[in-house]
Design a protein around this nucleic acid. Sequence first.
DNA 1: TCGTCGATCTACT
DNA 2: GTAGATCGACGAG
Length: 200
Amino acid sequence: MKLPESFYIGTNVVYQAKSLIGKYLFTSIDNAITGGYIVETEAYNGVIDKASHAYGNRLTPRTQTMFMQGGIAYVYLCYGIHEMFNVVTSVKGQPHAILIRAIQPTDGIEIMLFRRNMQTLKSNITQGPGSVAKALGISRAINAISLQSDTLWIEDRGLSFEDQDIAAVPRVGVDYAGEDALLPYRFYVKGNPYVSKPNK
DNA sequence: TCGTCGATCTACT
DNA sequence: GTAGATCGACGAG
């Protein structure tokens, strides 16, 4: 059921980001399983991508996770408040990552509501990368954990979308990246209510 | 050592 | 529509 190690070791991060659409992401944290299927991703293409933390082979305590072999999680803090969850891909030394920006929740919705401090299910529960991490209980404590573990993993349940139902557009919040900000490295399911900023 | 600012979200006006 | 939250990474000095 879990996506095999071989999927993550592939070197075409843009293709992998698109492939993750429709895959199921689960966490088992605090004795509760939560998750859903991925409806929005962004690819970060290693040392040549100005939008990536690892641009220009920048190796720091934070980014070293991205330089490890694919198939692990990269979790970091943004704006001092939000933790973001990425899937590290490719071979050791090549810092590719895929940001999970939104999922459609299917399991453990009660738990996710509690973590998000919400009473009723609304589309913003897992809409945007900070929200996804919070709803799933993901924090920097599980940075670099294996996606073959029983804490955090991705499954293929046979759900897939046609090319025409997946939009490929420029990434969000990376204006500082110059011409790389224009690359169509963001993928999402057209019309899905959990997608953040559907029209850009 | 210090100052700047970010792969964002929420609560307000 | 817009401001505030809140902290670690990074480059300048």
